[in-house]
């Protein structure tokens, strides 16, 4: 299904211009005391939400920005940041 994303620099653009950068997992864990499990969690593990999720995108065929957005994975539409997450 088609996808339109809003780049903070370029505005609304065709989804194929972007590269998906993964679910937002918060800041990269600190090196000190890092366990294989915590690292694996950060690198590989996903929630696979069927619904609204916060995620990273890279405007590959555009300005080169990395940004986060909220999208409903059941219909590919961008949504406002949900109240609950503010």
């Amino acid at each position: 299904m088609a996808l339109t994303l809003t780049c903070p620099v370029c505005g609304k653009r065709n989804g194929y211009e972007f590269r998906y950068g993964g679910e937002d997992k918060g800041p990269r864990p600190a090196e000190a005391g890092l366990t294989p499990r915590a690292w694996c969690d950060y690198v590989h593990m996903n929630k696979c939400t069927a619904g609204v999720q916060k995620e990273w995108w890279f405007h590959r065929d555009g300005c080169g920005s990395w940004f986060t957005t909220w999208r409903d994975t059941t219909n590919n539409l961008e949504v406002e940041q949900p109240e609950a997450s503010k």
């Binding site: 969690d41 590989h44 593990m45 996903n46 696979c48 994975t73």
Partner: peptide, 21 residues
């Protein structure tokens, strides 16, 4: 394709899975 979402939602276990159409 629904397994990973179900397992996280129901048991809080995250999996190294991406669900694609």
């Amino acid at each position: 394709g629904y397994s990973a979402g179900i397992i996280h939602h129901m048991l809080g276990i995250k999996l190294p899975i991406s669900v694609l159409t």
